[in-house]
Protein backbone atom coordinates (compact mmCIF):
# COMPACT_ATOMS: atom_id res chain seq x y z
CA UNK A 1 0.00 0.00 0.00
CA UNK A 2 2.82 2.34 0.86
CA UNK A 3 4.29 1.83 -2.55
CA UNK A 4 1.11 3.08 -4.14
CA UNK A 5 1.81 6.59 -2.92
CA UNK A 6 5.16 6.57 -4.68
CA UNK A 7 3.61 6.16 -8.13
CA UNK A 8 2.67 9.78 -8.78
CA UNK A 9 6.22 10.71 -7.95
CA UNK A 10 7.70 8.01 -10.17
CA UNK A 11 5.47 9.10 -13.04
CA UNK A 12 6.35 12.70 -12.43
CA UNK A 13 10.07 11.99 -12.36
CA UNK A 14 10.05 9.90 -15.51
CA UNK A 15 8.00 12.35 -17.57
CA UNK A 16 9.58 15.56 -16.44
CA UNK A 17 13.12 14.63 -15.46
CA UNK A 18 14.36 11.35 -16.89
CA UNK A 19 12.92 11.63 -20.39
CA UNK A 20 13.99 15.26 -20.91
CA UNK A 21 17.48 14.49 -19.61
CA UNK A 22 17.83 11.58 -22.03
CA UNK A 23 16.63 13.82 -24.85
CA UNK A 24 19.18 16.48 -23.93
CA UNK A 25 21.89 13.83 -23.89
CA UNK A 26 20.74 12.47 -27.25
CA UNK A 27 20.66 15.89 -28.90
CA UNK A 28 24.07 16.80 -27.53
CA UNK A 29 25.68 13.69 -28.97
CA UNK A 30 24.17 13.76 -32.44
CA UNK A 31 24.17 15.81 -35.61
CA UNK A 32 22.14 15.55 -38.80
CA UNK A 33 23.66 14.88 -42.20
CA UNK A 34 22.40 16.25 -45.51
CA UNK A 35 19.69 13.59 -45.80
CA UNK A 36 18.32 14.38 -42.35
CA UNK A 37 19.68 11.21 -40.75
CA UNK A 38 21.12 11.58 -37.27
CA UNK A 39 24.62 10.32 -36.53
CA UNK A 40 26.79 10.17 -33.44
CA UNK A 41 29.33 12.95 -32.98
CA UNK A 42 31.22 14.88 -30.33
CA UNK A 43 31.32 18.02 -32.46
CA UNK A 44 28.80 19.86 -30.30
CA UNK A 45 31.14 19.50 -27.34
CA UNK A 46 34.23 20.28 -29.38
CA UNK A 47 32.63 23.54 -30.42
CA UNK A 48 32.31 24.63 -26.83
CA UNK A 49 36.04 24.35 -26.23
CA UNK A 50 37.30 25.39 -29.65
CA UNK A 51 39.54 28.42 -30.19
CA UNK A 52 38.21 31.22 -32.36
CA UNK A 53 41.74 32.26 -33.37
CA UNK A 54 44.63 29.79 -33.62
CA UNK A 55 46.66 29.48 -30.46
CA UNK A 56 44.10 31.22 -28.26
CA UNK A 57 44.79 30.31 -24.61
CA UNK A 58 42.24 27.80 -23.28
CA UNK A 59 40.82 30.02 -20.57
CA UNK A 60 40.27 32.94 -22.95
CA UNK A 61 38.22 30.91 -25.40
CA UNK A 62 34.85 32.48 -25.80
CA UNK A 63 32.57 29.83 -24.27
CA UNK A 64 35.10 28.75 -21.65
CA UNK A 65 35.44 32.33 -20.45
CA UNK A 66 31.66 32.65 -20.19
CA UNK A 67 31.62 29.46 -18.11
CA UNK A 68 34.36 30.74 -15.81
CA UNK A 69 32.53 34.02 -15.33
CA UNK A 70 29.35 32.13 -14.36
CA UNK A 71 31.22 30.09 -11.78
CA UNK A 72 32.96 33.16 -10.43
CA UNK A 73 29.78 35.24 -10.04
CA UNK A 74 27.96 32.26 -8.48
CA UNK A 75 30.82 31.75 -6.01
CA UNK A 76 30.83 35.40 -5.00
CA UNK A 77 27.06 35.33 -4.50
CA UNK A 78 27.29 32.13 -2.48
CA UNK A 79 29.99 33.63 -0.26
CA UNK A 80 27.96 36.77 0.36
CA UNK A 81 24.83 34.72 1.08
CA UNK A 82 26.82 32.69 3.60
CA UNK A 83 28.25 35.75 5.34
CA UNK A 84 24.82 37.35 5.57
CA UNK A 85 22.83 34.18 6.10
CA UNK A 86 24.76 32.39 8.82
CA UNK A 87 24.48 35.11 11.47
CA UNK A 88 20.82 35.60 10.59
CA UNK A 89 20.13 31.89 10.99
CA UNK A 90 22.21 31.82 14.17
CA UNK A 91 20.30 34.68 15.74
CA UNK A 92 16.97 33.17 14.77
CA UNK A 93 17.89 29.78 16.17
CA UNK A 94 19.29 31.32 19.34
CA UNK A 95 17.68 30.84 22.71
CA UNK A 96 17.27 34.52 23.39
CA UNK A 97 15.18 35.16 20.34
CA UNK A 98 11.53 34.59 21.04
CA UNK A 99 9.84 35.84 17.89
CA UNK A 100 11.56 33.44 15.51
CA UNK A 101 8.46 32.48 13.60
CA UNK A 102 7.80 36.11 12.76
CA UNK A 103 11.35 36.66 11.52
CA UNK A 104 11.18 33.47 9.51
CA UNK A 105 7.91 34.73 8.07
CA UNK A 106 9.59 37.97 7.00
CA UNK A 107 12.23 35.99 5.12
CA UNK A 108 9.59 33.97 3.35
CA UNK A 109 7.18 36.74 2.41
CA UNK A 110 9.19 37.97 -0.63
CA UNK A 111 9.08 34.42 -1.97
CA UNK A 112 5.32 34.65 -2.30
CA UNK A 113 5.93 37.09 -5.11
CA UNK A 114 6.98 35.97 -8.53
CA UNK A 115 10.73 35.72 -8.99
CA UNK A 116 10.63 37.75 -12.21
CA UNK A 117 8.67 40.56 -10.61
CA UNK A 118 11.07 40.74 -7.69
CA UNK A 119 13.97 41.04 -10.10
CA UNK A 120 12.15 43.66 -12.20
CA UNK A 121 11.61 45.68 -9.05
CA UNK A 122 15.38 46.01 -8.69
CA UNK A 123 15.52 47.64 -12.12
CA UNK A 124 13.33 50.48 -10.87
CA UNK A 125 15.30 50.72 -7.65
CA UNK A 126 18.76 50.80 -9.20
CA UNK A 127 18.15 53.07 -12.21
CA UNK A 128 20.12 56.30 -12.49
CA UNK A 129 16.98 58.23 -11.61
CA UNK A 130 15.56 55.36 -9.60
CA UNK A 131 14.29 54.96 -6.07
CA UNK A 132 17.71 54.35 -4.52
CA UNK A 133 19.37 57.34 -6.15
CA UNK A 134 16.48 59.63 -5.29
CA UNK A 135 16.86 58.56 -1.69
CA UNK A 136 20.63 59.04 -1.75
CA UNK A 137 20.20 62.43 -3.44
CA UNK A 138 17.73 63.43 -0.74
CA UNK A 139 20.28 62.53 1.94
CA UNK A 140 23.00 64.38 0.06
CA UNK A 141 25.00 61.23 -0.67
CA UNK A 142 26.58 60.82 -4.15
CA UNK A 143 24.59 58.70 -6.56
CA UNK A 144 25.32 55.05 -7.16
CA UNK A 145 25.37 53.73 -10.68
CA UNK A 146 25.46 49.97 -10.38
CA UNK A 147 22.61 48.90 -12.66
CA UNK A 148 23.93 46.94 -15.67
CA UNK A 149 27.18 45.99 -13.93
CA UNK A 150 28.18 42.64 -12.48
CA UNK A 151 27.60 44.13 -9.01
CA UNK A 152 23.91 44.37 -9.91
CA UNK A 153 23.92 40.75 -11.09
CA UNK A 154 25.47 39.60 -7.79
CA UNK A 155 23.01 41.73 -5.85
CA UNK A 156 20.12 40.14 -7.72
CA UNK A 157 21.42 36.65 -6.98
CA UNK A 158 22.03 37.34 -3.29
CA UNK A 159 18.61 38.91 -2.92
CA UNK A 160 16.82 36.04 -4.64
CA UNK A 161 18.76 33.14 -3.17
CA UNK A 162 19.45 34.28 0.41
CA UNK A 163 16.46 32.40 1.91
CA UNK A 164 17.87 29.18 0.45
CA UNK A 165 21.00 29.74 2.53
CA UNK A 166 19.28 30.77 5.73
CA UNK A 167 16.63 28.06 5.96
CA UNK A 168 18.82 24.94 5.93
CA UNK A 169 21.34 26.51 8.30
CA UNK A 170 18.51 27.55 10.61
CA UNK A 171 17.09 24.05 10.58
CA UNK A 172 20.38 22.37 11.39
CA UNK A 173 21.15 24.89 14.14
CA UNK A 174 17.73 24.28 15.64
CA UNK A 175 18.38 20.56 15.69
CA UNK A 176 21.63 20.96 17.57
CA UNK A 177 21.47 19.19 20.89
CA UNK A 178 21.59 21.91 23.55
CA UNK A 179 23.18 19.56 26.07
CA UNK A 180 26.32 19.40 23.90
CA UNK A 181 26.69 23.16 24.12
CA UNK A 182 26.10 23.07 27.85
CA UNK A 183 28.64 20.28 28.23
CA UNK A 184 31.24 22.36 26.37
CA UNK A 185 30.50 25.32 28.60
CA UNK A 186 30.77 23.16 31.72
CA UNK A 187 34.16 22.00 30.55
CA UNK A 188 35.32 25.59 30.41
CA UNK A 189 35.05 26.49 26.73
CA UNK A 190 34.45 30.18 26.08
CA UNK A 191 31.86 31.49 23.63
CA UNK A 192 34.21 31.48 20.64
CA UNK A 193 35.40 27.96 21.36
CA UNK A 194 31.86 26.66 21.82
CA UNK A 195 30.96 28.11 18.48
CA UNK A 196 34.03 27.00 16.54
CA UNK A 197 34.30 23.52 18.07
CA UNK A 198 30.67 22.57 18.67
CA UNK A 199 28.01 24.75 17.09
CA UNK A 200 29.62 25.38 13.71
CA UNK A 201 30.82 21.81 13.03
CA UNK A 202 27.36 20.51 13.89
CA UNK A 203 25.73 22.95 11.48
CA UNK A 204 27.93 21.96 8.53
CA UNK A 205 25.26 19.78 6.91
CA UNK A 206 23.01 22.85 6.83
CA UNK A 207 25.80 24.99 5.44
CA UNK A 208 26.51 22.45 2.73
CA UNK A 209 22.92 22.27 1.59
CA UNK A 210 22.65 26.04 1.79
CA UNK A 211 25.76 26.49 -0.33
CA UNK A 212 24.50 23.95 -2.85
CA UNK A 213 21.09 25.54 -3.05
CA UNK A 214 22.55 28.98 -3.71
CA UNK A 215 25.42 27.99 -5.96
CA UNK A 216 23.35 25.86 -8.34
CA UNK A 217 20.68 28.38 -9.28
CA UNK A 218 23.41 31.03 -9.28
CA UNK A 219 25.50 29.27 -11.86
CA UNK A 220 22.52 28.50 -14.11
CA UNK A 221 20.57 31.76 -13.92
CA UNK A 222 19.95 33.74 -17.06
CA UNK A 223 17.07 36.01 -16.09
CA UNK A 224 19.03 37.92 -13.47
CA UNK A 225 21.98 38.53 -15.76
CA UNK A 226 19.63 39.54 -18.57
CA UNK A 227 17.65 42.05 -16.54
CA UNK A 228 20.19 43.46 -14.11
CA UNK A 229 23.32 42.92 -16.18
CA UNK A 230 21.82 44.58 -19.24
CA UNK A 231 22.89 41.68 -21.42
CA UNK A 232 26.53 42.60 -20.97
CA UNK A 233 27.41 39.93 -18.48
CA UNK A 234 26.37 36.81 -20.29
CA UNK A 235 26.50 33.67 -18.23
CA UNK A 236 26.34 30.05 -19.24
CA UNK A 237 22.55 30.11 -18.69
CA UNK A 238 22.26 32.90 -21.25
CA UNK A 239 24.28 30.84 -23.73
CA UNK A 240 21.84 27.96 -23.40
CA UNK A 241 18.81 30.25 -23.63
CA UNK A 242 20.31 31.86 -26.75
CA UNK A 243 20.77 28.47 -28.44
CA UNK A 244 17.24 27.27 -27.75
CA UNK A 245 15.22 30.45 -28.11
CA UNK A 246 17.16 32.57 -30.56
CA UNK A 247 19.40 30.44 -32.73
CA UNK A 248 17.43 27.22 -32.69
CA UNK A 249 20.59 25.12 -32.41
CA UNK A 250 19.26 22.52 -29.99
CA UNK A 251 22.29 20.28 -30.36
CA UNK A 252 24.80 22.86 -29.26
CA UNK A 253 22.40 24.09 -26.56
CA UNK A 254 22.08 20.52 -25.27
CA UNK A 255 25.84 20.08 -25.24
CA UNK A 256 26.23 23.24 -23.15
CA UNK A 257 23.51 21.95 -20.81
CA UNK A 258 25.30 18.64 -20.37
CA UNK A 259 28.57 20.45 -19.66
CA UNK A 260 26.74 22.52 -17.06
CA UNK A 261 25.22 19.38 -15.49
CA UNK A 262 28.68 17.81 -15.25
CA UNK A 263 29.99 21.00 -13.67
CA UNK A 264 27.24 20.92 -11.08
CA UNK A 265 27.79 17.22 -10.36
CA UNK A 266 31.47 17.92 -9.76
CA UNK A 267 30.74 20.79 -7.39
CA UNK A 268 28.12 18.71 -5.57
CA UNK A 269 30.74 16.00 -5.19
CA UNK A 270 33.07 18.51 -3.61
CA UNK A 271 30.37 19.81 -1.26
CA UNK A 272 29.31 16.29 -0.31
CA UNK A 273 32.88 15.47 0.62
CA UNK A 274 32.99 18.42 2.99
CA UNK A 275 29.73 17.19 4.46
CA UNK A 276 31.10 13.72 5.19
CA UNK A 277 34.29 14.89 6.88
CA UNK A 278 34.19 13.66 10.45
CA UNK A 279 33.56 16.30 13.07
CA UNK A 280 36.61 16.43 15.32
CA UNK A 281 35.73 16.85 18.92
CA UNK A 282 39.17 16.58 20.34
Amino acid sequence: MKKLFAYPYVVWISIFIVVPLLLVLYYSLTAVDADGAAYFTLDNYRRFFEASTPGQPFLERIYVSVMLRSIWLALISTAICFVLGYPAAYIMAGKGFSDKSFLLFLFLVPMWMNFLLRTYAWLTILEQNGVLNNLLGFLGIPKLDILYTDAAVVLGMVYNFLPFMILPIYTSLRKTDRSLIEAAQDLGADGIKVFSRVVFPLSIPGVVSGVTMVFMPGVTTFIISNLLGGGQYILIGNLIEQQFLKVGDWRFGSAISVILIILILISMGIFARVDKEPVTTA
Partner: peptide, 10 residues
Amino acid sequence: YDKAWTEVLA
Protein backbone atom coordinates in the same frame (compact mmCIF):
# COMPACT_ATOMS: atom_id res chain seq x y z
CA TYR B 1 25.73 35.51 -36.28
CA ASP B 2 25.17 33.95 -32.89
CA LYS B 3 28.83 33.16 -32.44
CA ALA B 4 29.82 36.68 -33.41
CA TRP B 5 27.14 38.13 -31.14
CA THR B 6 28.25 35.98 -28.19
CA GLU B 7 31.77 37.31 -28.73
CA VAL B 8 30.43 40.86 -28.66
CA LEU B 9 28.49 40.31 -25.45
CA ALA B 10 31.26 38.38 -23.73
